[in-house]
Amino acid sequence: MNPLTQSLISGLMSGAVYALLAVGLVLAFHTTRVVNLAHGESFAIGGLVAATLADAGLPAYVFAPVAIAASVLFLLAVERFLLRPRRSWPIGNLILVTLAAAFLTRGVLQLAMGVDPLSFPRMFTGAPFRIAGGVLPPQGLALIVIGVTTAVAVTLFLLFTPLGRKLRAVAENPDAAELLGVNVDRARSLAFGIAGALGGLSAVLLVPLVSVDYQAGLGMTLRGFIAAALGGMAPATVILAGLGLGLSEALVTNYAGALAQDPIVFIALIAVAVWQSRKIAFGGTGRA
């Protein structure tokens, strides 16, 4: 086995998940200006629903769509019942509302699904691919290909379709968008629905390779948020940031060991934060 090749493969696998999570966070952020700290719960819900249904003997073509639908419904509910009625609240308070939603969801999942980690069988089986001394299981390849393709597709949708432009308009100035006939509530539902689908999809792809429990959500939110922040909350760059984060974590683990991983990632995050605040202080176009 070649540790370097294996690091690159492993980095791409986690990078694809970070990219999916980051794009979901950015979508919600862009339509509401709220960093949705309950975003990762869509991962936990999708993973636990899939595992429970798989345990009940249902095939993947049933449990995967149902799990993704559950994640979609969850984030739609967060937008509809928690954020929409509080539209006039300051953003900081709304972020706390999403944090509360995350903890509440965690509690409900603990009661409903139990505390033990769960998993379910891979959907993509077969002999692993051996590439230059590295090993890539078919499920891992599916994770990288589907994950990156979906993240890119959502970004292209935002940048180049009329609906995507509307979402960006709502993000920037909801009142002005409303005056031009855009249904802001519906646009936000759409953004949260897509974000939920991305959370559910990442669970369906990743959980067979790892496991999921009721408290997986906040950790996932944190990983997605780091990628999103490194990418400046812009949809196109967060995909690169997600992949870059995954690859650099893997290379750090390979060359410097797992103990060095957190310090290096957080130093990078602080450096990016300082760099971005400089840009703002010197009159850049970025909004804090």
Binding site: M1, T253, G257
Partner: peptide, 19 residues
Amino acid sequence: LARIDLRANDASIQLANIV
């Protein structure tokens, strides 16, 4: 010996290094 972070969801790099 290889070390693995508690939050890690992949140990293949560590395994590739030691096995």
